[in-house]
Computed example of a mutant assay.
Amino acid sequence: MTTISTETTPAPDERLYAEMGAFIEEMTAKGILLATGGLEPGGVRVTSQGDEITVMDGPFTEAKEAVAGFALVEVRSKEEMIELARRFRKIVGDGVSEIRQVFGP
């Protein structure tokens, strides 16, 4: 037996697209936006304990949150990054954004 779901996800409104487009354009013009992208919800988890290495395909049932995407930015301070994250959250609405510093050259 095959069932067809009639539930649909509402399309994001045009205001969201316009505000996010302007925000991305501004960060690009300032030279601070290095990359953006979406992340697939499943992923692969590789864990180790002693000599045992386990590889598990997602999605992971214990995960309470899903990471949908990322933005890689180059800013001068933690405060500047927090301000960008505040602006982003005001545009997209309720949710959680996590800030992590990237180390390297």
Rank of each mutant, 00 (worst) to 15 (best):
34 L>Y: 03
17 Y>S: 01
50 G>E: 10
49 Q>R: 14
19 E>V: 04
104 G>P: 02
62 E>K: 02
26 E>G: 08
94 D>H: 00
101 Q>M: 03
93 G>L: 06
79 E>N: 11
68 A>C: 12
61 T>A: 05
29 A>K: 13
1 M>W: 03
76 R>W: 01
10 P>Q: 12
24 I>L: 09
31 G>K: 05
22 A>P: 07
83 E>R: 06
63 A>Y: 03
6 T>C: 09
59 P>T: 09
74 E>L: 05
97 S>V: 15
89 R>E: 10
91 I>F: 05
25 E>D: 15
76 R>V: 00
41 P>E: 15
49 Q>S: 10
14 E>M: 12
9 T>L: 15
11 A>W: 14
64 K>P: 00
78 K>D: 13
48 S>Q: 13
84 L>N: 01
38 G>I: 00
101 Q>C: 14
26 E>F: 03
95 G>N: 12
48 S>H: 10
4 I>M: 07
5 S>A: 03
84 L>K: 06
26 E>Q: 10
43 G>R: 13
53 I>P: 06
81 M>D: 09
59 P>D: 11
5 S>L: 10
39 L>K: 02
18 A>R: 09
65 E>K: 14
31 G>E: 07
18 A>K: 02
35 A>Q: 13
32 I>D: 12
65 E>M: 13
60 F>N: 07
43 G>T: 11
77 S>L: 07
40 E>S: 14
35 A>Y: 03
70 F>V: 10
52 E>C: 00
88 F>V: 01
39 L>H: 00
73 V>Y: 04
80 E>M: 02
101 Q>Y: 08
67 V>G: 08
36 T>V: 06
46 V>L: 14
63 A>H: 14
38 G>S: 15
48 S>V: 11
61 T>F: 03
35 A>I: 01
81 M>L: 15
83 E>D: 13
5 S>I: 13
69 G>I: 00
47 T>L: 15
101 Q>I: 10
5 S>H: 04
9 T>Y: 12
82 I>D: 04
81 M>K: 06
57 D>M: 09
58 G>E: 02
88 F>T: 04
35 A>T: 04
70 F>K: 14
51 D>K: 08
79 E>I: 02
35 A>K: 09
105 P>N: 11
91 I>P: 00
71 A>Q: 09
37 G>W: 08
50 G>P: 07
15 R>P: 00
39 L>M: 15
67 V>H: 13
85 A>Q: 01
34 L>D: 12
18 A>S: 10
32 I>R: 00
62 E>A: 05
17 Y>N: 05
9 T>N: 07
22 A>R: 11
24 I>P: 05
28 T>N: 14
82 I>A: 05
51 D>C: 04
13 D>I: 05
39 L>T: 10
52 E>N: 09
70 F>H: 03
15 R>E: 12
103 F>G: 05
15 R>K: 12
66 A>W: 13
95 G>S: 12
15 R>V: 05
1 M>C: 08
81 M>P: 02
94 D>S: 06
44 V>T: 12
86 R>N: 06
23 F>L: 04
13 D>L: 02
60 F>Q: 14
72 L>G: 08
63 A>K: 07
31 G>L: 13
19 E>R: 07
100 R>Q: 09
100 R>D: 01
102 V>C: 13
91 I>G: 01
2 T>Y: 02
84 L>D: 00
25 E>P: 01
30 K>W: 03
18 A>T: 07
